[in-house]
Structure formats: structure tokens, C-alpha cells
Design a protein around this nucleic acid. Structure first.
Lengths: 335, 335
DNA sequence: TAGTTCAATACAAACGGTTTCATTTCAAGC
DNA sequence: GCTTGAAATGAAACCGTTTGTATTGAACTA
């Protein structure tokens, strides 16, 4: 591979000039610039980015910490991040942390040891806090998607409480009163927030909340199927299921159908997230749309600003959600 | 950040000794080693990996080119790659190429400019060939998942022809004779291969192939829904639909149901890939399992070998698929 | 005892760019 | 024609490691 010295010799200039030809062409005379570019072209010269990066101490790379790459939602967020990253000439290092705090720390270290300029973390971190440990850590950091609440760094999230409230209110407005809750993992912040929204809706409709009507479980189809089975066999009088994710909802639909229920006639079910599949399953899922790609885009944009040294303050972005009404939830038949 | 010089001074040795303390401790006397480690510990010294990488010319990073990160299958392959990468201490640069050849070239360049040690490419490349251009390119390269056929670099793939044959044979064995094909994009290699398998099955059952029974379209639920609509309204006598992906199948199911068909009584539908949803949708999807995570694992393992300088030959790995029989395809009722 | 060998360590040269600072060039102004 | 200042360019330091080679001294051999 040709190096800067070769080019400089061929163009009859110093290496410094060649360097400038790429980094700030305006500094060169028209003539020299042309000569240098020609020489570079002829030698097929590409600056060794390792050397560059080493000298400049900026990798133009950001590390993304994902709890589970294979998860549809995270994948979509990632896709949004990637779009903005590409636009701004950033590379993406992706690490699947499997919710493992050790791996997250390793990530932090990667930045300190200069492999990346900043970190975007997805998903709430169940254990500890990356940032309280040594000191508020000067590593550029953005937290997106299911972020914890009041944190000292930029976040981008949705208002889970309001969204859940809206969804539950819709169910209540349809006349449902006996509503089961298929919640996610009990220790998750999102779970607590969405439950809060649900109760809030109940309150405003003057319907009492019953702890026995909520069933916790993993955010997955299998989890939803199991939770639904437990909840449904315990409570025969439920007319609707408020679930905390589309996957849970789809699992619940499966269970309900296997139980011989006619959906949505016998049981209304709502989801959360609006994954693509919800539109095509049977019955098409009424749910709340969460702008996953957009969350990624905003997160990466925030990171770009951060790295550009713009003081974004503690930009806590909250993105809008939207009820998407399909046909898995129907007005309660007058008994 | 403390650097090697600081540590060496504090331990009263030369920088070289500190370096060796980390890279090859056996070279040091027990005593010095202890002293150096202590000093490093006290100064919280972490080698600047940028400098390291620059010196050694090995980034321990591999670039993964993905046509679409948000796609469930690619995400799963990625997950497999990630697992093995983590085990072997590799970092992953991920780039969503959007099937754009320019971006793929950019990727190649990244390796040439040394940001990554090798490339794993996912999905078939619809245009041109990365590798014929300048010369067979000495960049470590592995192609996984929907790879083209006879290529001069390691690949890991499934046998689409055989898998499609098996799936179609199953349908034929159930008594179906009028089978529509919901194919993927016409210019895709996978599409051609799966169609070949389908025809092969037809042949062995002595059933003639009718071009008019195949409908091409995108590999998506929306695509499947549309193709199904076209195909079904054109051919009223179809008893089964052989589709080329689970997403297509799910779209087709939606259409069929909207058309008032009773599934699978009126129409059998099979998928391909075995995405998780297939198990939970209605009716649960009969499909062929494609080991996505495993493909990723094998690909990354191949890459590790390649980078370790082991001559893997032109390791063309073909992984086993498996029919997964659920209930979207049933024996044809005797008319 | 002198010579040889070997382990342990130090020295200094890379690695391939970027950037500071000094110098040269050259047109404009007087 | 001389001065002046800006624009263009070059020389050399620098970034923080790794690594080939040289050095040292102790143990071992003949």
C-alpha cells in the first residue's frame, strides 16, 4: 500500500502538503493540489486510518451496547442508529451485552482505551450503574429505549405511563371492566411504568385495581402464552387482556385460541410496541406504536452533537407514541 | 491516562519491559513482573489500544456487512456471529449496506485502510462482485447466509434446493396437486434455488410444473399478502401454497383469512425459515427450520481460523435444515 | 581461569500519519 | 526598488506502543 511519503515524492512536495491536500484543500494552491491529487490517484493512495486515528485520537466510531441483538425492537433501534451514523460518517461497534454488567464495563473501558469515541446504551440496565462508580465519567454517553428515569446523561425514550394509560383507557372506554394484565418482568422499569399508566387509567374511570389480575413474566411470546394460561384459568370472568408487549400479546392470543376462545368476541387483547407482525396476525393486534427506528436516530443524533462538543444540556428526549387500533380489542357486548 | 512510560518509571524498568509484562510475562523474572504489575495497578494503567493496534497492525475487529439489520433472520445470524466474536475477543463493526454495493466497497476499503481485519458478508449480493474487481483480493472474507453458489471464498449456507424439495414433497405427500408458489424476489439466488427444489419435488411425484402458479414478490409480509391476493384470485382451485419465507406465508395467511377461507381446511400454507412467530400465529406454521444463529457462529469461527492463518481451504459449509411440521398444512380432504 | 551460553533487561528504531512552527514566496503598497 | 504581510510550503516533533538488537551479568563448561 502506498503511503504518504510515496505520494509526496511523486508530487514533489512534502508529506505535510499531502496531508493538507486531504484534510484542508483550501490551504493549498490550486496547482499543487491538483498535482498531489493526481499523484495520490495514480498510486491509489488511501491514508492509513490506523495511523490517522492514532495521531488524532478520534476513531469516528461509537459503541452500541444492546441487551439482545436478535430482539426485533432493538434491531429496529439499531437500524435507526446506523442510518444516522452512516450519514455522519461514523462507524458502529456493536456489542450484545446479554444484560451482563461486566460486558458493559468492558465497553466503557473500550472508550477509555480509545477504541470508540462514545457509547450508546440500549435497554435499561438491571444491575448497578456504569456511571456512579469512579465518578460521573466523562465518556460521551447516550441512553436510549427503556431508559431509567432521572439520570444525568442524555436519554431518548417514550412516555410509558401515558402510553399505557391511553391504551388502557381505550379498553375501558370500550366498556371493559374486568381487565387482566399480562405484565413483563417484574423488576423492569418499563413494567412498572406501564403498570402505573394502567392503574392511572383505572383510577380515572373509577375502577378499582386488583393485584390478582396481573401476571408477570418474560417479554416474549412463550412468556405471554404461559402468563395468559395462568391468568385465564385463575380468572374466568376477564373480558380483556392488557399486555405489555406485542410478543406477550401474541403468546396470549395463541393460548386463548387454544383454550377455544373466540377472539375478539370473547376476549379483547391489546399489545404494546407495534411490531410489524401485529398487523398480520389473527386477529390483527390493537397496540401502541413505539417509534423504535426514530429512537435510534435521535439517540445517534444526540451522540453526534455530544461528540461535536455541542452542549446538549441533559437532553431528555421523549418521543410520541400512538394508539394503533386494529381488531383484537372490541366493544364489550352488552350482557 | 497513565502511559507505559509512567509505569516503567515507577517500576524502575524500561517501557519494553512493561510491554512484555503484559504480552509475554514468562519473559520476565518473577520479581520484575511483580513490580511492574504493581506499578501498573497503582497507576490504573491500560495500554492505549490505538497505539497498540497501530503498531501491531491488527485491530481484532471484524466488519459485518448486513443487508438489513432490522430483519429478524439477519439479526439472528448477527447474534451468532457476536457470540463467537465475544468468545474470541473480537470486536464487531456492523454496517447496514441496504444492499448498496457502494457501501460494500467502502467496507472493503475499511479493511484495506486497516480498520478491520476481515469481512463477513451476509445475504447475497445482487449486483457485481466485490472480489473480481482489482484481483482476488487478499482480504479475509467469509460469506454467510444466502450466499452465491461456486465462489472462491469460504461460505456457510444451507441447501435451499434440498430443503425446498423436502417441504414441497411433504405437501405432495399430503395429497396436494394444485400448489401455488409464493416466491420471493425473482432476481434472488435463494428464490431460484428454492424454486428448483420445488420443481424437483414435483418431478419426483410426476406432477407437471405450471409457471402460472408462481407469483414473485418481496420477502415480506406485505409482499406475501399481495402476491397471495393476485395468485388466489387468478387460480380458484389451489389447495396449497408453498411460500419461500415465513413472512410471505404469514402475509398469505392474512389474505386467505380476509378472503374468508378456513385455514388449513380450505388451503394449506407452508413457510420457510422458521422464525419465532410461526409457532404462535394462527394457524401455527409448518415450515423449514434454517439454523440462523448457527450460521453466524460457523461464519465467525471460519473467520477466526482465517485470521489465525489456518488454511481453511475453501471451506464451503452447508448446514442442515429440518422440516418443522405444525398445523398450517393438512392432508387434502378426499373430494 | 578464560570462554561460552543464556536469561533478563535496556535501548532505540520503527509504525504512518498530523500539526506546529519556521521559512519561503509573491503580490500589493508606497 | 524596497517593504510588508498573507499565503503556501517544508522540517521536524509527536502520538504510545512493540520489537529487533545490544548489553549485562551470572552460571556453566572446558
Amino acid at each position: 500500500m502506498a503511503q504518504i511519503r510515496d505520494v509526496s515524492k511523486r508530487a514533489g512536495v512534502s508529506p505535510a502538503t499531502v496531508s493538507r491536500a486531504f484534510s484542508d484543500p483550501s490551504k493549498l494552491s490550486k496547482d499543487t493540489l491538483k498535482r498531489v491529487l493526481k499523484a495520490a490517484e495514480e498510486l491509489n493512495y488511501k491514508p492509513n486510518s490506523l495511523a490517522q486515528v492514532f495521531r488524532v485520537k478520534r476513531t469516528n466510531t461509537v459503541l452500541v451496547l444492546v441487551p439482545d441483538i436478535a430482539n426485533v425492537l432493538f434491531a429496529r433501534v439499531l437500524s435507526g442508529i446506523e442510518r444516522i451514523a452512516a450519514e455522519n460518517n461514523y462507524l458502529l461497534l456493536v456489542s450484545d451485552t446479554k444484560d451482563d454488567i461486566a460486558l458493559e464495563r468492558a465497553g466503557l473501558e473500550m472508550v477509555e482505551t480509545l477504541r470508540a469515541d462514545g457509547i450508546i446504551q440500549l435497554g435499561e440496565r438491571p444491575l448497578g450503574d456504569l456511571h456512579t462508580h469512579p465518578e460521573p465519567s466523562k465518556v460521551p454517553f447516550v441512553h436510549a429505549f427503556d431508559t431509567p428515569d432521572a439520570v444525568p446523561y442524555p436519554t431518548v425514550r417514550i412516555n410509558n405511563v401515558a402510553a399505557a394509560d391511553a391504551m388502557a383507557s381505550y379498553l375501558l372506554a370500550l366498556g371493559h371492566r374486568r381487565i387482566g394484565v399480562l405484565a413483563g418482568l417484574k423488576d423492569r422499569i418499563v413494567t412498572r411504568e406501564r403498570l402505573r399508566g394502567f392503574r392511572q387509567a383505572l383510577d380515572s374511570f373509577g375502577v378499582p385495581f386488583e393485584e390478582s389480575l396481573v401476571e408477570y413474566g418474560p417479554y416474549s411470546m412463550a412468556g405471554g402464552a404461559q402468563s395468559a394460561l395462568r391468568l385465564l384459568s385463575r380468572n374466568r370472568d376477564l373480558t380483556a387482556l392488557f399486555t405489555m408487549s406485542d410478543e406477550i400479546a401474541i403468546g396470549a392470543v395463541r393460548t386463548a385460541m387454544d383454550l377455544g376462545l373466540d377472539l375478539p368476541a370473547n376476549l379483547s387483547i391489546t399489545g404494546f410496541d407495534n411490531i410489524e407482525f401485529g398487523k398480520f396476525c389473527t386477529p390483527p393486534l390493537t397496540t401502541v406504536m413505539q417509534p423504535a427506528e426514530r429512537i435510534g436516530e435521535v439517540a445517534m443524533t444526540l451522540m453526534c452533537n455530544l461528540l461535536a462538543g455541542e452542549t446538549t444540556g441533559d437532553a431528555q428526549q421523549t418521543l410520541a407514541t400512538e394508539l394503533v387500533i386494529r381488531s383484537s380489542a372490541k366493544r364489550l357486548a352488552q350482557a
